[in-house]
Design a protein around this nucleic acid. Structure first.
Length: 419
RNA sequence: GUGAAUGUAGCUCAAUUGGUUAGAGCGCUGGACUGUGGAUCCAGAUGUUGGGGGUUCGAGUCCCCUCAUUCACCCCA
């Protein structure tokens, strides 16, 4: 039988065995975030489209070709969120969570939507775990956020996580840098690919990310953005690096690291592992974003972790737990004992056991077969003549041994129990 | 948006240059085993060969369209 409907392209079901691992990872994240004093927040999946267009940037691919965008019945232009930062900032402002002089720290766990062609480590619906710290400009916070991200990966067993670090400066630095990039590239126009020629016009920084070989050759000789940082941005970045160095946190300085969202400023970073070719997490400062969304002129910083990429990586490394949760007890009973069987299962469940029962009181053989297939550790066989004395047969499904016992031994009793 | 590969039973995969009724293992159902599961043996059901159209006496196989999956590019988590 072919199902009538299948899931849409680029989205998928997360089945119980896998989801269990997801929850374990999320629990780990929650525990670490808690220790760093971040609080969980959940924002809607739909937001005003305009909000993302303005903050992520009109010229970015996310906005130009990847947003799920539509008009709702009230003619409002709505988008499925393609990222988590703008919504958190919006919620922060809308709910007046700003306390002057205090940093506000949030984390979120949720799904994002981007209309891409699906491929390895990329779906149209994907899940992110992210943090946002709003209202503090100190480089000390940059360091803490990076530490937090690395600690999370380390606790999951990714001992070879590599931190890539860069500073993209502030809008003033970038203007200077863009200008010099245009000057630098103008003699090489013929050597650059078509895309890069277009980028030369609207966003020269993007050229640095190009994967085309002939572009790479030109890019290799490009001046570093670090030489164009203003004093404030330069000192900030030097401080970040110096503290990371003192802490013994290793990083790869990647001055060509360009994050694909326009709101990033100053420190940006990504985490990957050797040979993966994808980043499993990334983030940075966004010191102008809060003001852009109509709030006070506050700085912010955050990161997002790609859940699917992380889970895939952990699976490849054998770092996922594969154990299956099985019933402690399977209740088998004579047809006349339906009510008692239901009560017994409830009593055992109240005591915290995982209990499964046969739903068709067929013959013993087929019920035992059901018990076997349920992978229950033990079966409780209820027979009328035994139950009169509050006794049942307890069968160990692994060894096959069985004994007749008082129900008291299971610390339950059916005497006096009624529906 | 561009390019490539793949699509057969619930799952993993077969099927000669186009050739009769599309097979195997696992799983499933039943029996050997009349109230004790698993192991073994036996038997049985698997299916519009992703969908649609075309070529042909004949298509799982060749052609076109379409959908999906996988991979790469673009970009990103």
């Amino acid at each position: 039988m072919k199902p009538k409907y299948t899931s849409l392209r680029g989205v998928r079901d997360i089945l119980p065995d896998e989801l269990k691992n997801w929850r374990r990872i999320e629990d780990r994240a929650r525990e670490i975030f808690r220790r760093y004093n971040y609080r969980e927040i959940e924002t809607p999946i739909i937001e005003p489209a305009e909000m993302f267009i303005r903050t992520v940037g009109e010229e970015t691919d996310i906005v130009r070709k990847e947003m799920y965008i539509f008009k709702d019945r009230g003619e409002r232009l709505v988008a499925l969120r393609p990222e988590g930062t703008a919504p958190v900032v919006r919620a922060f402002l809308e709910n007046n969570l700003y306390v002057p002089g205090r940093v506000a720290k949030f984390y979120y766990i949720g799904d994002m939507f981007r209309y891409d062609r699906p491929q390895a480590g990329r779906q149209r619906e994907f899940h992110q775990i992210g943090v946002e710290a709003l209202g503090e400009s100190s480089y000390v916070l940059d360091v803490e956020v990076i530490m937090l991200l690395l600690e999370f990966f380390e606790e999951l067993g990714l001992v070879d996580a590599v931190l890539l670090l860069n500073s993209v400066g502030c809008p003033r630095c970038r203007l200077e840098y863009s200008k010099s990039l245009r000057e630098f590239f103008s003699p090489y126009v013929d050597e650059l690919c078509e895309d890069c020629n277009a980028r030369l016009e609207n966003n020269p920084l993007r050229i640095l990310d190009c994967k085309v070989e002939r572009c790479k050759k030109v890019i290799a000789k490009v001046p570093s953005i670090l030489d164009y940082l203003c004093d404030d941005c330069r000192i900030h970045f030097e401080n970040v690096r110096s503290v990371l160095d003192s802490l013994g946190i290793r990083y790869v300085l990647d001055t060509r690291l360009v994050r694909g969202l326009d709101y990033y400023t100053k420190t940006t970073f990504e985490v990957t592992v050797p040979g993966l070719g994808l980043s499993i997490g990334g983030g940075g400062r966004y010191d102008g974003l809060i003001k852009d969304l109509g709030g006070p002129d506050l700085p912010g910083i955050g990161f997002a972790i790609g859940m699917e990429r992380l889970v895939n990586l952990l699976r490849d490394r054998g770092l996922l737990v594969e154990e299956e949760e099985v019933p402690d007890y399977f209740i088998i009973y004579d047809a006349t004992l339906v009510t008692k069987a239901i009560i017994l299962s409830k009593l055992l469940r109240n005591r915290g056991f995982i209990v499964e029962m046969s739903y068709m009181a067929k013959n013993l053989k087929s019920q035992l077969k059901e018990a076997d297939r349920s992978k229950a550790k033990k079966s409780v066989i209820m027979r009328e003549e035994l139950l009169a004395n509050n006794r049942v047969i307890l069968k160990d499904m692994i060894t096959g041994e069985q004994e007749e016992i008082e129900l008291d031994k299971l610390e339950v009793s059916l005497i006096g129990e009624r529906v």
